[in-house]
Computed example of a mutant assay.
Amino acid sequence: MSLLYPRLLSGQAKPLYHEYLGLSISELVQRVDTNHDSAVYVAIGGDRVSDEKLKELRKLVVDLAAEAGFPEKPDPHSQTTFDQRLAILLHSESGLTPAEAASGDIWAFLALILMPDISFWRYPNPPRDRVLATDITRHIFGRLWWRAQLVHSAGDRDPYSALQILGEAAFDQIYARRAALGGSPYLVKAILRVWNGLDLRGLNSRRVLIDFLMRLLRLAPFLQFETLDEPTLDAELRMAVRESVTALLANSDLDRSEIQYKINSIFKDASTERITPWLNP
């Protein structure tokens, strides 16, 4: 049976957000609770999460934050490490299902009622979407749960290893296109698998990624990605990213032979031994 989490509706969440902007971390600790008078639950679908479970989840998150320097301001490396570890913790320990995790009101409750001190420590004076979950891809907790959900591979020795392939900004490029791409764990894992096999040193990897995702969006109406087996899907994705790399290099100062050499160095398999068609004399 899945767990149902309390939901803090926007009418109650927004005033708390504005109030908390003026409070210190120590003052926010005093506002921590496992309940709120206006919190609601969906009527069916599971058991309501217990206070004990919420307290346990909070303790795990606070302990993790303490390792990153909480309540002192963390350095960038500590922030990155904290986010990666928090993604795993939330996904593995919360008991949330995708249906529940799709609700921004649940993340608003976690950010403003259960863990406001952690929220405002990780993002001092945060913009609204970091805590209100008006956009889950930006929420302090929601974005991390979904990142873990999309890369999780239950059969692997390290089921969350793919979390380290892309940084937050790059992964958000995928999840922002979730209607066509980012909502499919099967496709996201394939994207990460293919991307991890590329050597993009010397290229603007962000530009390559954005162009690559745009090509996949154009393919999506004509190709059912989830019906393809892994080798076939990987081949399709490699072809698309190869086109993106080729297009980017075509606008560089390299000559044709240098471009071909660069392409072959990026795609290290037999398929790259052929000459890229547009490079033919």
Rank of each mutant, 00 (worst) to 15 (best):
R206A: 14
G155W: 05
P277E: 07
W278Y: 14
I25F: 09
Q84W: 02
S38F: 11
G95L: 08
R85P: 01
D47N: 14
T272F: 08
L4R: 02
S252C: 09
I275A: 06
A179W: 06
I44S: 12
D229R: 07
P98Y: 06
G183S: 11
T137C: 01
R138I: 00
A99N: 13
I259S: 03
R130C: 04
Y175P: 00
P185A: 06
L237T: 02
L248N: 06
I191C: 09
F82V: 03
D75P: 05
D234P: 00
L16H: 08
A39L: 06
A101N: 02
T80F: 03
V62Y: 11
P159W: 03
A235E: 05
V42E: 10
W146G: 01
D47L: 12
S78R: 09
L110T: 00
S119M: 07
M1P: 09
R128D: 13
S153G: 10
G46Y: 13
R7L: 04
W107K: 07
A170Y: 06
A102V: 00
P159Q: 05
W121G: 05
A68R: 03
H18L: 15
I174K: 02
N204T: 06
R178V: 00
W146Y: 05
V61K: 08
D211M: 15
K262Q: 10
D255M: 04
G11R: 12
R157E: 14
A235L: 04
S205E: 15
Q84D: 11
P98K: 08
Y123C: 09
Q173L: 11
D253V: 01
Q79M: 13
R157K: 12
